[in-house]
């Protein structure tokens, strides 16, 4: 399909009487990485929550494949993978149980690939260990393994590399590279520089704020 995947026009958001951004507009094409930059508290997470449809506290227009996002909500949810601030992993369940429930939420995912995905993030052998006895990094990895299962074209990742070791970060960057090569798009926030990805475009929120 021609045209941008996701288009944002004239986005305005205010929080606790403080303007986060105003007149924000950008588009995300297939095969593109968009990195949201900004200081702490500049509204990166808020922007990602708005884009994913979790937060409705905004003014402006968001279009998904040319259609207003509220009208194609179902289609959008099917094509979105959102990795939020909280990993969405239940501490009392094992990694495998966590992922199986996620597969039930997203019917297009193949539940038989769960074991494979856990192996990819280095959690082979931890399938039956409740997540509360895993380390912080492993906890994040459980959630990140969703990236290996996903066939969604748009990934929205909020600080995906927090608490992940160097090798893990390299593996995730390679994964993002493969996703881009397949024609997917990524919107992410991170305080690290992405290595080896030439198509990164940044949007800086610091210049937007009304300081």
């Amino acid at each position: 399909m021609s045209g941008p995947m996701l288009q944002v026009e004239n986005l305005f958001c205010e929080r606790d009487d403080r303007m986060l951004f105003e007149g924000l507009g950008f588009s995300v094409d297939a095969g593109e990485i968009v990195q949201i930059e900004g200081a702490n508290g500049s509204g990166k997470t808020t922007l990602l929550r708005i884009l994913s449809g979790l937060s409705r506290n905004y003014e402006g227009d968001i279009f998904w494949r040319g259609e207003p996002i509220d009208r194609v909500r179902d289609q959008f949810c099917r094509e979105l993978l959102y990795f939020g601030h909280q990993p969405g992993v239940k501490a009392l369940l094992t990694p495998e149980e966590n992922l199986r429930w996620y597969c039930a939420l997203h019917p297009s995912l193949d539940a038989s690939r769960v074991a494979e995905a856990l192996e990819q993030v280095g959690l082979a052998g931890f399938e039956d260990v409740p997540c509360h006895s895993l380390s912080a990094g492993q906890h994040r990895r459980v959630s990140l393994s969703r990236l290996y299962l996903s066939d969604a074209p748009l990934w929205i990742l909020d600080e995906p590399f927090t608490a992940i070791d160097k090798r893990g970060v390299a593996a995730k960057e390679a994964l993002i590279g493969r996703h881009i090569a397949r024609g997917g798009s990524v919107i992410l926030t991170t305080h690290q520089d992405l290595q080896g990805s030439s198509v990164v475009r940044s949007i800086n929120l610091d210049r937007q704020g009304g300081h």
Partner: peptide, 12 residues
């Protein structure tokens, strides 16, 4: 723990 966000973003 963020499960609720995932639940709301499900196409189901």
């Amino acid at each position: 723990d963020g499960s609720l966000e995932q639940l709301l973003l499900s196409p189901q």
